[in-house]
């Protein structure tokens, strides 16, 4: 579904991503892993078109996207939940959810979103900024789902969130992937969470992709070499 080939990205003169190749199969759930600062978020942003790339190909559902603007990538079916949630704090929960509806032509917020996150229905008219961290994360995921994406990209969805909500978010991601057939690519630092939710892993080290495989293949050696701090 998503193929990244030979991706190079720079911030100024700093070379951040080095010839990155990544394959995300349709219907799969892939976890992008690696220590802090290895380029995971930059790779997701590059896929989403939020940072410029110097060279390489990004192909999604047979369409070359490397030069397409971010809003076009969202339009063709890529949903993105940024790190740190980045909800619109002054907008109400409902308004946050309504933004993505434009491209689907729907007038109402899909009931599925409230089914997955009932709290969003209760808080519908409250401002996004008034929500707790966990609720904001649910809103950020709900907001991306309003686009009715085929591929959902999540950047550390459990960062700084209370354990009960982490579990809930894990269940939602599994349901979206298994029940709704949504392809998922997520960045996650929590190993147990990643093992529970994802079926594939890709590990990054210093801007390069160094290991990929099915989740059971993520053994202690790989963890020690690339993930342990």
């Amino acid at each position: 579904m998503l193929t990244v080939k030979g991706l190079n990205q720079y911030y100024g003169e700093s070379h951040i991503l080095w010839d990155v190749d990544l394959d995300v199969a349709a219907g799969s759930c892939t976890c992008l892993m690696g220590r802090n600062g290895v380029g995971k978020t930059t790779l997701l942003k590059a896929i989403m078109g939020l940072v410029r790339i110097r060279s390489g190909h990004i192909e999604y559902a047979g369409q070359a996207l490397a030069k397409a603007p971010a809003h076009y990538r969202a339009r063709v079916g890529i949903g993105y939940v940024p790190q740190g949630r980045e909800i619109f704090p002054q907008l109400t929960v409902e308004e946050n959810l309504l933004i993505g509806l434009d491209i689907t032509g729907a007038k109402q917020i899909p009931e599925r979103i409230f089914e997955l996150f009932p709290i969003l229905k209760t808080m519908r008219r409250r401002r996004g900024g008034d929500l707790s961290g966990g609720q904001q994360q649910q809103l950020a995921i709900g907001r991306a789902l309003a686009l009715q994406p085929k591929l959902l990209i999540l950047d550390e969805p459990t960062e700084g969130i209370q354990p009960s909500i982490v579990q809930e978010i894990g269940q939602v991601i599994r349901r979206l992937n298994q029940d709704d057939g949504l392809t998922v690519l997520l960045v996650e630092q929590k190993l147990p969470f990643a093992r529970k939710v994802a079926e594939h892993f890709s590990i990054m080290e210093r801007g390069r992709l160094v290991a990929t495989g099915a989740m059971p293949e993520l053994d202690d050696d790989l963890v020690r070499q690339y993930l342990a701090v």
Partner: peptide
């Protein structure tokens, strides 16, 4: 209208608005 929603969204976070298919330009 949607216009009002979109311009408020781009005021708060242009990247996030783009990622929600808003043509911020």
């Amino acid at each position: 209208s949607r216009f009002g929603l979109f311009i408020r969204a781009l005021r708060e976070d242009e990247d996030a608005a783009q990622a929600l298919a808003v043509n911020t330009v």
